[in-house]
Design a protein around this nucleic acid. Structure first.
Length: 498
RNA sequence: GGCGGGUUGGCGGAGAGGUUACGCAGCGGAUUGCAAAUCCGUGAAGACCGGUUCGAUUCCGGUACCCGCCUCCA
C-alpha cells in the first residue's frame, strides 16, 4: 500500500498519513455559506478535497472513507435576502423564506459542483439541523470555564485554551497589538469570540438558555464534526483564509469541549485563487461564478483540469490561456479514447487501474500537477489502460470526455486493401451531425479527386474554408479525408454549403 | 503595524544537493496540391546579495518585490 503524505498546517511539515482507523478514514471540509451561487474560488477546495477523497477511497477502499462537508445556512446574507422577500410580500414565516433561499442555493451548488465531476460527500449536514448539539456544546464549555454568558451573548474565553494561535502561528498578544477590530465592551478579552448571540425579531432565532438567539459561525463546524466524526478524526480541510480565525476557533472550542479527543490530526489548507494575476473581486470586475463559466461554454471538465494543473498549496491563477490548453489536452485524450479500437490493443477498460507511479504522485501531498504530466505521458505513449485508470482516479469520466470532446468524426481511407469510410459518433445529436458532415466529406472528397486531375483547387478551398468557419477541422492526406468537429463547431454554419 | 506564504526559461508549471522535467508557444525538418493533424529534432530558467558544500536553482541568512490573513469571503 502506498503511503500518503500530506502537509499538515498544524506542524508545518509534510507527514506520513496514518489514519486513526484504516477501516474508517474520516475527513471534514468546510463547506459553503449558502446565500448565492458558488464562485470559482469556492470551487478550488471542492475539487482539491474531492481529489483527496478519491485517493483515500482508492487506497483504503471506497467503503472505508467518510467525508463530511457542511452547508452553513445560518448567515446574515441569507437573513437579509429572506427579509427582503418577506417585505416584498412573499408568503410564509421568515424561517420558511430562509429555508426556501437555502434550498435553492444548495440545489445550485450541487448542480455546479456535479458539473466539475466532484463526488457528493457522505454527509452534508446543515447548521440549522444541529442547533441542539451546538447549544449542548456551549453549555459544556460554560460549565468547564471556557465560555461565559454576557448580555445575551455567550463568548469563548481564549485565554482558557493554552494552545490558542498554534495552528495559525499567532500569539494572542501579537494579534491584540496589531488588531484593527473594534472590540465589544462586554468582552473579557479582545480576542474572545462569539459562540451564541441574540436575535432581533427580524432575524431567525432558536430558544436557548441565554434567550432567543443564533449560533456564532465557528461552533457549527465543531458541533457537526463531533456529531458525525467523533472526538478525534483524521483530516480537516478548507481554504487558507479560514485558517484564522475560523479553524483556530474550531480547535479551541472542540479541544475544550472534548478534552479526551484531539480533534483533527491533519489540517490541510488550499491556497487562494486569482484571476489573470489579480485577486478575484467584484470591484475589479473579474468576479465570476462556476455557473458563469459553464454558461460561457467552458465544460466542467476543463475547469477541473485547470484547477488540478496547479498544486493546491500554491496560489492558482485562472486564465483564458490555461482553459484553452486544458481544453486542447482533453480533446486529444478524447480523440484517442474514441479512436478505432482496431488501431490499439484490446483491453477490458472496466478493470483499468492507474499505474503505481501515478498513485504515488498523488500520494505525495496531492501533486496533481505532476499527475497530469504523467497522464500526458500515457497519452503520448498510447497506454490506454494506464490513461483510463489515471483519468478515473482524477475524477474524469472517460465516456463523458468522449461525448463532450470528441463527439464524432468521419473519415475516408484509401489503402492498398481497398477504400472506405468510417463514422464514429457518441449520442443521438452527435450521430445526426456526423451524418450531415459525412455527406459533406463525400462531396469534398469528390471535388478533391477532380481537382487533383485539373490542378484547380479553388472549389476545394472554398468548401474547406466554410467547414473551417463552422468549426470543423479538415484533414486531407493521401490516405483520405477526415473531418473532426472542433470546440467551436456550429452545425448551422454548414448550411452555407450547397 | 503583527503573522504567514511566494519569486523557476516567451507563458504555464514540477521534481531533485550533482545527470533531459513536462506542456503550450517559437524555430528546423518529415508529411501535405495548400493547410490541418501527426511524427522527429531544437534553443531558452531558477529575483538579488552573501554563506554552507568538492558542487546549489534545490539547504541557511539578508535585501527587494508580490500575495494572503488579522474585517463571520474557500
Amino acid at each position: 500500500m502506498v503511503t500518503i503524505r500530506l502537509t499538515n498546517s498544524k506542524t508545518r511539515t509534510k507527514e506520513d498519513f496514518v489514519p486513526i482507523d484504516p477501516a474508517n478514514v474520516r475527513m471534514y471540509v468546510c463547506g459553503p455559506t449558502v446565500y448565492d451561487r458558488a464562485h470559482l474560488g469556492n470551487a478550488r477546495p471542492v475539487v482539491v478535497f474531492d481529489t483527496l477523497y478519491r485517493l483515500l477511497r482508492h487506497v483504503y477502499g471506497a467503503d472505508h472513507v467518510t467525508y463530511v462537508r457542511n452547508f452553513t445556512d445560518v448567515d446574515d446574507k441569507i437573513n437579509a435576502e429572506a427579509l427582503r422577500r418577506q417585505k416584498a410580500g412573499s408568503p410564509g414565516t421568515l424561517e420558511d423564506l430562509i429555508h426556501e433561499r437555502t434550498e435553492e442555493t444548495i440545489a445550485w451548488y450541487h448542480a455546479d459542483m456535479d458539473a466539475l465531476g466532484t463526488l457528493r460527500p457522505d454527509h452534508e449536514p446543515r447548521a440549522t439541523e444541529y442547533i441542539g448539539q451546538m447549544i449542548a456544546m456551549i453549555q459544556g464549555l460554560i460549565a468547564g470555564g471556557h465560555a461565559y454568558p454576557v448580555e445575551g451573548h455567550v463568548l469563548f474565553r481564549v485565554r482558557s485554551y493554552q494552545d490558542y494561535g498554534k495552528l495559525s502561528g499567532r500569539s494572542i498578544d501579537d494579534m491584540i497589538a496589531g488588531a484593527r477590530v473594534e472590540v465589544a465592551p462586554f468582552k473579557e478579552d479582545p480576542m474572545d469570540f462569539v459562540l451564541w448571540k441574540p436575535s432581533s425579531g427580524e432575524e431567525p432565532g432558536w430558544d436557548s438558555p441565554w434567550g432567543k438567539g443564533r449560533p456564532g459561525w465557528h461552533i457549527e463546524c465543531s458541533a457537526m464534526a463531533h456529531e458525525l466524526l467523533g472526538d478525534s478524526f483524521d483530516i480537516h480541510g478548507g481554504g487558507l483564509d479560514l485558517q484564522f480565525p475560523h479553524h483556530e476557533n474550531e480547535i479551541a472550542q472542540s479541544a475544550c469541549a472534548h478534552p479526551h479527543g484531539d480533534f483533527a490530526h491533519y489540517w490541510l489548507h488550499n491556497e487562494m485563487l486569482q484571476v489573470e494575476g489579480k485577486k478575484m473581486s467584484k470591484s475589479l470586475g473579474n468576479f465570476f461564478t462556476v455557473r458563469d463559466l459553464l454558461d460561457q461554454g467552458i465544460p466542467g471538465e476543463v475547469i477541473r483540469f485547470v484547477l488540478l494543473m496547479t498544486h493546491y498549496r500554491s496560489p492558482m491563477d485562472w486564465t483564458a490561456e490555461k482553459a484553452r490548453q486544458a481544453e486542447a489536452t482533453l480533446r486529444k485524450i478524447a480523440e484517442f479514447l474514441e479512436s478505432d479500437p482496431l488501431t490499439k490493443p484490446w483491453i477490458d477498460l472496466r478493470y483499468a487501474r492507474p499505474p503505481e507511479e501515478f498513485v504515488e504522485a498523488l500520494s505525495n501531498d496531492l501533486n496533481t500537477s505532476l499527475a497530469l504530466t504523467l497522464l500526458g505521458g500515457y497519452l503520448k505513449k498510447r497506454e490506454e489502460s494506464h490513461l483510463v485508470g489515471a483519468l478515473r482516479l482524477l475524477g474524469f469520466d472517460t465516456e463523458r470526455l468522449v461525448e463532450k470532446f470528441s463527439p464524432f468524426s468521419v473519415r475516408s481511407f484509401i489503402a492498398e486493401s481497398g477504400s472506405g469510410r468510417t463514422i464514429s459518433a457518441h449520442g443521438d445529436a452527435a450521430w445526426n451531425n456526423a451524418q450531415r458532415v459525412d455527406e459533406l466529406r463525400g462531396k469534398l472528397e469528390t471535388l478533391r479527386t477532380a481537382a487533383m486531375a485539373t490542378k484547380d483547387f479553388s472549389a476545394v478551398d472554398a468548401m474547406k474554408s466554410v467547414l473551417v468557419a463552422a468549426g470543423v477541422e479538415v484533414r486531407m492526406s493521401k490516405s483520405g479525408v477526415e473531418l473532426v468537429p472542433g470546440p467551436d463547431f456550429d452545425p448551422a454554419k454548414l448550411e452555407a454549403i450547397q
